[in-house]
């Protein structure tokens, strides 16, 4: 628990610049420690990908961010774009959901993987060797040959490996993985997760793993942050959060994961639909779907607070879960 913080996000607010601004993220805080994985869990529209973009500094032009995003000890929110750009790829890198879309269709794999090396001054033979070494490292077989392939000529798994090689090419300290296995076959998913874990062990990279899939997350996460409608519902060590949720949303989420033996595909779905940040319910955003909702939940927005050491929950009645 003494690992140093690679990324620290404090009270991050991301809002749209429209006339009626929407707070897509509303005061989100989370930490990612070096050599560890923090998983950011949420339904679609919860703002989890926006958080990834905000950390990268690649928010759409129509959105702006306030709060703190700290790399190591350095606040990066609000620094000039030129300085921010120098961190991208080299300090913080990103891998995306769909590797086919994330690769330029008209450039050979090697050129894309080697782009950062090239910008670092490598040329000719040294550049080629660097690319082959990167591809070999992420488990691409026959890397010399594959470097000359176009993205459409590779399988989904190999493409995602190439994307990971590209992300590793700048030697980042922090890796943002936005649903990196969602677009892949189940059999390939496990291998990509193993690869990420291996790279993390070797290089001590901090990983922010964005996902909607609790099962995937339970395999790889050290810490868990549960996002609901742009706010943190609960956070803490993954094992402890999953075994004993302190927020009704997390509990419902854990129950909705189908087990192999269950009769129906979704064992216990959460009633209602996910609240969107644009039409966030008053008080606790989860109250319309919450089986435990009381009067106060409608009126007062619960602030995230440490219920037991290391465990944060934003539920008025978090303590009641301790006794279950």
């Amino acid at each position: 628990m003494t690992d140093k913080l690679a990324l620290s996000v404090r009270d991050l607010v991301v809002s749209t610049d429209a006339d009626a601004p929407v707070r897509i993220l509303d005061g989100v805080s989370l930490d990612v420690r070096s050599g560890r994985t923090t998983a950011l869990i949420g339904e679609s529209g919860s703002g989890k990908s926006i958080l990834g973009s905000a950390v990268m500094g690649l928010l759409p032009d129509t959105m702006s961010a306030q709060g703190e995003i700290v790399f190591d000890d350095r606040q990066v929110l609000g620094i000039p774009e030129r300085q921010r750009r120098a961190l991208r790829g080299r300090w913080v890198a990103m891998i995306f959901q769909d590797p086919l879309a994330a690769l330029n269709p008209s450039q050979r794999i090697g050129r894309q993987v080697g782009e950062l090396l090239r910008r670092g001054g490598l040329r000719g033979k040294a550049l080629e060797e660097g690319v082959v070494r990167l591809l070999a490292r992420v488990g691409v077989p026959r890397p010399e040959e594959r470097a000359h392939a176009f993205p459409h000529q590779l399988s989904g798994g190999l493409r995602q490996r190439a994307v990971i090689a590209m992300a590793l090419s700048g030697g980042p300290r922090l890796l943002i993985a936005d649903e990196p296995t969602t677009a892949l076959d189940v059999t390939v998913q496990k291998r990509i997760l193993d690869l990420l874990a291996e790279m993390q062990r070797d290089d001590g990279i901090a990983i922010l793993f964005i996902s909607h899939d609790l099962r995937v997350v339970s395999h790889i996460a050290d810490d868990l942050v549960v996002l609901y409608a742009g706010r943190v519902a609960e956070s803490g060590p993954a094992r402890s959060v999953l075994s004993k949720p302190l927020h009704p949303y997390t509990r419902a989420l854990a129950r909705s994961v189908p087990s192999v033996s269950a009769a129906s595909a979704v064992s216990d779905p959460i009633p209602g639909t996910a609240a969107s940040p644009a039409a966030r319910p008053s008080g606790c955003a989860f109250h319309p779907r919450c089986p435990l909702a009381r009067e106060i939940c409608r009126r007062e927005t619960p602030q995230p607070r440490e219920v037991v050491p290391g465990r944060v929950s934003a539920c008025h009645f978090a303590e009641e879960f301790l006794d279950d």
Binding site: L58, R85, R88, A101, L103, Q112, E115, V163, G170
Partner: peptide
């Protein structure tokens, strides 16, 4: 707006 342009920008390209 294509994802591969985001990838390129994530590599530090302007």
């Amino acid at each position: 707006r294509e994802p591969y342009v985001q990838t390129a920008r994530a590599k530090g390209l302007s």
